[in-house]
Simulated assay, not measured.
Amino acid sequence: MHFPLFGAAPIPFDDLHTIEKNIPNIILWAVPVMLFFTVIEMVVTYYQEKEFYEKKETIGSILVGLGNLVVTAGLKVGLLYLCIWVYNLIPWRMELQWWTLIPCYVIYDFFSYWAHRVSHEQRFWWATHVVHHSGEHYNLTVSYRLSWIQHLKIIFFLPVAFMGFHPIIFFVTNQIAVLFQFWVHTEYIRRLPAWVEYIFATPSNHRVHHGTQDQYIDKNFGATFIFWDRIFGTFEPEIEPVTYGITTNIPNKANPIFINFHELTDMARDVKQAKGLRKKLFYIFGSPIKIAEEKKQQEIREAVDSEVAV
C-alpha cells in the first residue's frame, strides 16, 4: 500500500549525482550576502572606533571559513550516500514534500541542541567545536569559524535521518540551520522583543553562549530555538557585558591549522603523559572544565614541589 506521505520508493544509488544536483547550494549562494554584511560591519566598526575586530583574528576566521567550505564540499557526496543508505533502509520513507522541512527543522534543532551541549561537556567533541569559541572578539566573522572536523558530529543527527525525511529535505535543513547562525554573531543587534528572545537564539542569547564568565559558561546551546535551553535548564539571559574567548586563549590567532587542531594536539599530549587507562579516558572524554581545573592543580603541585626541592 502506498500512502500519500510515507512509503516512498527507495532511491537507487545510480541517482546519487542527480539527487546531489537537486540539492540547492544555499550556503554557496549566501556567501556573497554574508561577505557584504561583514564588510558593512567592519566599516561601521572602523568609523565608530569600536574594538569588535582584530586583524589577526579576522584573518584566522576567514581562513578557517574557507577551509570549512572546501572540507564540506569534499564530504558532500559521502554524506549524501550515507543519508540515502539510511533512507533506503527504513520502510517509513517520506515523499519529497517541501512542507516536511518544517518538522524536520524543529527536530533537527532539538538534536543540534544536544550535539552542541555534548560538544561542551566532553573533551573529544569539544575539540571539534573549540574553533568556534577561540575568537576573543564577537563579530560576523565568528560565524565562519567552523571546525574542519565538525562533520564527525553527523552521528548526533542520524536519528533525524532514521525518521524517514527525504535526503534533500535533510540537506536543505542542515544548510538553513547553519545560515541562521550567521546573523546572531554581532554586537550591533541588541535585545529584540521579548517574545523573540523567548523563542529564538538571538544575538543577545548567543553572546551569552560565547561568554567566559562563570554565569555564562555552558549556557544557551540552542542553535535556532532557545526554548530548548529553557526546557533543559541551560538558559541564561545577557545581563553584564560578555567577555569572549575561551578560558585559556590561543596565541596563534591567524593560523587556521593551529586554530583547528590545537585542542587535539593538547589532548594527545595529555593522554600520552597520563598514567593508567582511566586517566587517559578522562583526558579524552572528561569535562573540559574539570580537565582544566585538574591541570591547573597539577601545575600548582609541581610549582610547590619545585620550591620545596630548592
Rank of each mutant, 00 (worst) to 15 (best):
155 I>C: 08
229 D>Y: 09
167 P>I: 06
119 S>N: 14
112 S>N: 12
151 H>Y: 15
20 E>D: 12
181 Q>D: 08
33 V>E: 04
106 V>A: 07
76 K>M: 12
67 G>H: 12
279 K>E: 15
302 E>G: 01
139 N>R: 01
57 E>R: 01
156 F>C: 10
18 T>I: 13
186 T>C: 10
262 H>T: 03
169 I>R: 00
283 Y>N: 13
297 Q>C: 03
139 N>E: 07
197 E>S: 10
260 N>I: 04
85 W>L: 14
232 F>M: 10
128 T>F: 14
250 I>V: 15
42 M>T: 02
35 L>R: 03
154 I>V: 15
234 T>E: 10
306 S>W: 14
265 T>Y: 13
136 E>P: 01
100 T>S: 12
269 R>I: 11
201 A>L: 05
32 P>C: 02
48 Q>N: 14
2 H>W: 08
213 Q>K: 14
242 V>H: 06
2 H>Y: 10
273 Q>C: 03
184 V>R: 09
136 E>L: 03
139 N>K: 03
23 I>E: 07
185 H>Q: 10
86 V>S: 01
149 I>H: 09
196 V>N: 08
70 V>S: 03
301 R>S: 13
238 E>W: 11
52 F>W: 15
211 G>N: 11
273 Q>Y: 05
234 T>I: 05
126 W>G: 08
90 I>V: 14
104 C>L: 02
172 V>E: 08
27 I>A: 07
206 H>V: 11
122 Q>Y: 07
33 V>L: 15
28 L>W: 07
17 H>G: 03
99 W>P: 01
191 R>S: 12
87 Y>W: 00
66 L>S: 10
10 P>H: 01
2 H>F: 11
289 I>W: 05
210 H>M: 11
103 P>C: 07
183 W>T: 06
264 L>T: 07
221 F>A: 03
125 W>H: 06
97 Q>G: 01
310 V>P: 04
40 I>E: 06
50 K>T: 14
107 I>L: 14
162 F>H: 03
181 Q>N: 14
30 A>D: 09
142 V>Y: 00
155 I>H: 00
98 W>N: 02
5 L>M: 10
213 Q>H: 13
148 W>S: 04
62 I>T: 04
91 P>W: 05
261 F>I: 05
38 T>L: 15
228 W>I: 05
223 A>T: 14
204 S>N: 09
184 V>T: 14
306 S>V: 00
181 Q>S: 14
224 T>N: 13
221 F>R: 02
248 T>R: 13
185 H>D: 08
169 I>G: 02
176 I>K: 04
69 L>I: 12
15 D>P: 01
178 V>A: 13
202 T>P: 08
70 V>K: 05
222 G>W: 11
222 G>D: 11
303 A>V: 00
58 T>I: 01
226 I>K: 08
185 H>F: 08
51 E>T: 14
222 G>C: 10
27 I>Q: 11
301 R>P: 00
25 N>W: 00
189 I>H: 03
138 Y>M: 13
57 E>L: 01
209 H>I: 12
267 M>N: 06
23 I>S: 02
95 E>D: 10
